[in-house]
Design a protein around this nucleic acid. Structure first.
Lengths: 112, 112
DNA sequence: TTGAAATATAAGCATATAATTATATAATAT
DNA sequence: ATATTATATAATTATATGCTTATATTTCAA
């Protein structure tokens, strides 16, 4: 397994050491999401969500793809931390119900 | 595998998201240590070390055993987070050299 | 081409964090 | 008994963090 320098991993763990960001990463493992979906799921302001997303993006833990007016975020499988992140996520219960809730509320973004 | 509520794991990851504490945990995986050894290894003040240790102890990630004038700390294998912690540590390179250095400097505590 | 929706960013503020300094407690050795 | 060593704790301070409010940018739709 690829080893990671302690300092780098500590930085990543600090990013994951926030309930909102950890949940974001867990959701992104199951499905790509855009900011407005996170706003619904977390019931937080758009700037607060954008700022959390930016931290994850700055660390290259997630990547973005614009689709029309939305920007979708995904887990970055190319990240040197990807495997470590997955091994953390494995200890968490699925958050699929949050995505189902979104769907039921008609808040899931469909950009086709 | 035992699942952990997101909020709890986020709290633990925040504790591990500090270079000093992450290294402490990694060292404790290899060998129990006392505060004065950590002071040598990290070249930090005794109160700074004690405060990091306290955070880990407050979260029950480590346990203490007094041996004479020293208090030795160990990874708490009974913690509900133990497995998750180990799976994080597996991504880190061994810190055995730090312990060997201690030994060579005659700073390793022998309490027999 | 004007307005609305999605997102980003900057400034400000309140709280959290990590260090230092000073002091207290507990065990050991003389 | 007293001094020394190991450790803990409290107060203080500087910096980091996460939120809010306000505003800018981009895309799409009318």
């Amino acid at each position: 397994m690829e080893k990671i320098p302690i300092e780098k991993l500590a930085t990543v763990l600090k990013l994951l050491g926030d309930k909102t960001r950890l949940t974001m990463i867990l959701l992104l493992k199951e499905s790509e999401c855009c900011v407005c979906e996170f706003v619904e799921v977390f019931q937080m302001s758009q700037p607060a969500i954008s700022q959390h997303v930016r931290k994850l993006k700055d660390a290259s833990l997630i990547t973005e793809t614009r689709k029309g007016q939305w920007i979708f975020y995904s887990l970055n499988k190319q990240s040197e931390f990807y495997e470590a992140i997955i091994s953390v996520l494995e200890h968490l219960p699925t958050q699929a119900e949050k995505l189902i809730q979104l769907e039921l509320q008609g808040k899931k973004v469909n950009c086709e």
